[in-house]
Design a protein around this nucleic acid. Structure first.
Lengths: 153, 153
DNA sequence: GAAGATTGACCCATCAATCTTA
DNA sequence: TAAGATTGATGGGTCAATCTTC
């Protein structure tokens, strides 16, 4: 295999890039741990419930949901299996397309989300937002948009 | 369980927070895919080889290495198993502490890293750095330091 | 034939318990 | 008793193949 000479990253590039990796890893680990300890609810499951709650009719197509929570389709299928077993989500037919399946948040799921939300919000504030100014937030949101248009939507 | 009323996140807070999650997820997935396709080397394994290469004597204690690559100790043990089977890493006794194990990068591992590096650097540039200015990089590095001191080191 | 969803095979990570040495 | 490292059990994720409907 060819291995051409490549310019290494500058110190500034390295700091911006490795910082992203470190901060993300730390945050996700911390938030997941808090949600599991306080509510036995993994972060990934929380995010799915959260997205469903704000959808019209509290329901979404499986593939739309997978895209929104950044999961592969098969990954979401299995996660939905767990949520359905727990009674937080129901799957039903899709009115307009018989290939589709509609995942709907149940009342029990909504209640679970309501309980867990304060824990999650407190965690996001404690581990992330509390260290940033209003100007920081705007700058970051702008940067995300440049790197991945639609990322902050 | 108590569920006190909590202030939801503002639009700016949400954009900064969700943007981080989206950008990270997209980047890691893309970089991992590229390294696997071009060199059959997962991103996690690449990172371990990279950290070892810049260590004195190309070697580190297992637990130091685990901390540096943001992996649990058991996670690193298994990853090192794979790297050792592939011949990229060797484990040997630690001179100063017989409890410890030293993971050392082999010549074969160094060669593998040398081959894969251009792919990885090109990916980081394409998916991340190319969208950011020098000022952006400095701002981000500063923000990481505020959120998690030591994050950009 | 292409898209939505699921399944099977497999990879990878964590936690808790264990073993060894300090 | 604590610290370094590994192992067993388990949870959770992806890709490729499959089934159904468009």
């Amino acid at each position: 295999v060819q291995a051409p000479v490549v310019h290494p990253l500058s110190a500034a590039e390295l700091a911006a890039w490795r910082g992203l990796l470190r901060v993300h890893a730390r945050l996700v680990r911390e938030l997941d741990r808090e949600l599991r300890e306080a509510h036995a609810l993994p972060l990934r499951e929380y995010e799915v419930l959260l997205v469903l709650e704000s959808a019209p009719g509290r329901a979404l197509r499986m593939s739309e949901l997978a895209d929104l929570v950044l999961l592969s389709h098969s990954g979401l299928t299995r996660l939905a299996d767990r949520l359905e077993r727990a009674g937080y989500v129901e799957r039903g037919p899709c009115a307009t397309d018989r290939r589709g399946l509609l995942a709907r948040l149940t009342d029990k799921g909504a209640e679970r989300l309501r309980e867990a939300r304060p824990t999650h919000l407190a965690g996001v504030r404690e581990w992330f937002l509390s260290h940033l100014s209003g100007a920081d937030l705007e700058y970051l949101a702008g940067a995300w948009e440049r790197v991945d248009p639609g990322a902050s939507a």
